[in-house]
């Protein structure tokens, strides 16, 4: 269980990026975070990852407070951020330095096979396409078997086809070990395809605006009416979150018990 307790973040320049976000995400749950640009999604994710420390509140994973990067938490950024001086296999094995060589090679080979890049193992990152590079980044983050995987707009730089392909890839990989996934995205389709729950944030200061459960059966059909319906709900919530004079989404307040105090 990952729990955020009244997380707040004020940057050095005085920007209140996140304010009082409390949240619980169960093991194996997939949570999507959507919201307008600058509403604090990345800030929140970085606080969970331990890369940045929140100004207030705490992040707790299985009764352990997270204050620095933790081996149970992996992160995938918007860019692949592969290390250009390591081969594809070297990048995937980056977090396995401590393991014996044999075991490492085996894990890396498995992970590469899982993302369909076995034949690229000895290539340099510069020789990969954007989608392939992001697959390598996914393999690199998953190979140490984190309990929580954070993704900050991981597919936003890719075209629609590649994106759908990688979403399916990600779900397949997720099914292997069922880690908790927290996914920041701008793409409502992506949120509905992947998530068990969609959290809508609103800015100034960054807060949870609405939470929409999404319990469509998997695998999800992007064309189905239920999919469309869920998508409309999220879009409507997003719309309201973006309008200046946003009214409280009272009906969902009781339903989801979200933190909406203003």
């Amino acid at each position: 269980m990952l729990a955020l307790d009244r997380i707040g973040k004020t940057y050095a320049n005085g920007v209140r990026a996140v304010d009082g976000v409390s949240l619980q995400v169960g093991p194996g749950e997939i949570l999507a975070i959507v919201g307008g640009s600058g509403c604090g999604k990345s800030t929140l994710l970085r606080a969970i990852s331990g890369l940045d420390t929140p100004s207030q509140g705490r992040v707790v994973l299985d009764d352990e407070a997270i204050a620095a990067p933790h081996e149970k938490i992996g992160i995938i950024f918007q860019e692949p951020r592969l290390l250009p001086w390591l081969t594809v296999a070297g990048n995937v094995g980056f977090g396995l330095e401590q393991r014996p060589r044999k075991q490492r090679e085996e894990l890396v080979a498995n992970a590469l096979a899982r993302v369909g890049l076995t034949e690229k193992a000895r290539m340099w990152p510069r020789e990969l396409s954007g989608g392939q590079a992001q697959r390598v980044a996914i393999a690199r983050a998953l190979v140490p078997r984190p309990r929580v995987l954070l993704l900050d707009e991981p597919f936003s730089a890719l075209d629609a086809f590649t994106r759908a392909d990688l979403q399916d890839h990600l779900l397949g990989l997720w099914a292997d070990t069922k880690p908790t996934l927290i996914l920041v995205t701008h793409d409502v389709d992506e949120a509905i395809v992947l998530a068990d729950r969609v959290m809508v944030m609103r800015s100034k200061p960054g807060r949870i605006f609405d939470e929409i459960p999404c319990d469509l059966p998997r695998p999800r059909d992007r064309q189905s009416a239920a999919f469309d319906f869920a998508k409309r709900r999220v879009l409507a919530a997003l719309d309201r979150s973006l309008s200046r004079a946003a009214t409280d989404p009272v009906e969902s307040k009781t339903e989801a018990g979200a933190a909406l105090w203003w």
């Binding site: 890369l51 990067p69 992996g74 992160i75 950024f77 860019e79 951020r81 290390l83 980056f94």
Partner: peptide, 11 residues
Amino acid sequence: RKIVEVGRAFR
């Protein structure tokens, strides 16, 4: 900085 952050994320 982004590459250094990868190092930090892997502790």
